[in-house]
Design a protein around this nucleic acid. Structure first.
Lengths: 224, 224
DNA sequence: TTTTTTTTGGTGTCATCACTCCACAAATCC
DNA sequence: GGATTTGTGGAGTGATGACACCAAAAAAAA
């Protein structure tokens, strides 16, 4: 049941797996990313992965199981920029600026499908696919919780007003990210997404750190 | 071929249509809205509409044709608040505030499916459904153009800085709306969406009315 | 070599899908 | 009433969906 990892020390007894599991998983991920779960047929999958139906079931179990693995792979490989931005060692505002900027860049890469695999997936689906829908929704919730945590740390670090509604602010940036993913899917350019990100940062709560009293608007009136 | 309109003056020769076309179309719209095109099966459709398969094809032609009609119906009936907000006779900022507020309310009605039928539909789909995908994408483009127009009128009316990047601003609010639709689908409360809308309005470009020029240097509005 | 494991191709299954056809019932006009 | 038009239920269509099974080949460890 436990699939042997290829090329990592321990070797099984029989004929080794002739395909790179990670590589075929990646191919499946791209297809799912581009077409969604429903839009990706079994035949398309094994064709893109370059393996036979039997090998497919042997290695991945089912289409749904593969999809779950593909999501994990997406989070690890393609979604790394998200967590990286939130763990950056900067002030909170800069972290979110980088997050939005990275999103604009990542959503419009020409070596990967546009947009995000998770952001808007399975929001409308047949009742039979409640499992997948919940899975995707919980991933979205998780990524928003990740942002909330970063904001909380910002308050602790003192670079965000203590009375900031961090859940709402995380929901705001979460919404933006999802909307940007749709824009990217619809063909928006990277420049356009960067503009959106720039505007989004205007909504950042005003802090003492970023705008010290002497640079606040009212004192500008008296500078030469 | 042209379907007779029920109860409107001219009457055909044979047996009249026994169902209200508008009503059955509305039922189909709700189903498509909730489950998407793929997620809605033919059998589910005729069950919800309360008509037979024959009547269905007689009246609507095909599933895809019905979907297009459903989108038109959605725009006229359920999406009316969008156009209404943009045609409101107020200043531009208030119009967009009302737009976002209305979205928060409309996306979380308990008498209709949550979210938006168009906002995030068919972003990931099988290659065979390029037609639908393009149809939805063009509707999204159109709604964004509608916002751009309103912003343009705002500049003409002088309540928006003349150098505002109105396309980018429209894309920003368009992204937000789509993201909010996803949030609503994932179960976000109306209060949460209203919070997002509130934060989004913080990004509104600085205007003379709100911040007289002598108290706000232009550099304040640009990102680092 | 034997054993073990995984490969491949092909064929079959069972369900669902969107759609179609048909015979006939019902409602309106002449 | 007869003609005309549209309704209905129900059975059937071909296509596609995701699998499942099988036999035989291949490759490596024992």
């Amino acid at each position: 049941m436990t699939p042997k990892k290829i090329g990592s020390g321990r070797r099984g007894r029989g004929r080794p797996q002739s395909f790179d599991r990670e590589q075929t998983l990646c191919a499946a991920m791209r297809l799912f990313w581009d077409r969604g779960y429903d839009g990706t047929s079994f035949d398309d999958l094994i064709a893109a992965m370059g393996i036979s139906a039997s090998s497919f079931y042997n290695a991945f179990g089912s289409k749904e199981a593969l999809y779950q693995e593909a999501i994990d792979a997406y989070l690890k490989v393609a979604g790394a920029w998200f967590f990286a931005a939130l763990q950056e060692d900067t002030d909170t505002r800069t972290a979110f600026l980088h997050l939005m900027t990275a999103a604009a860049a990542e959503f419009t890469r020409d070596d990967l499908p546009s947009g995000c695999m998770i952001a808007v997936a399975a929001t409308q689906c047949a009742p039979a696919q409640t499992r997948l829908r919940d899975l995707l929704a919980s991933q979205r919730t998780r990524s928003e919780a990740e942002m909330t945590d970063r904001l909380r740390r910002g308050i602790a670090a003192g670079d965000l007003p203590a009375d900031t509604d961090i859940e709402a602010l995380a929901a705001f940036y979460g919404s933006l990210l999802r909307g940007m993913a749709v824009q990217a899917r619809d063909g928006a350019s990277r420049a356009r997404l960067l503009e959106i990100a720039r505007i989004a940062m205007q909504a950042w709560p005003v802090t003492q750190e970023l705008h010290p009293p002497e640079t606040l608007p009212h004192s500008y009136a008296q500078s030469p």
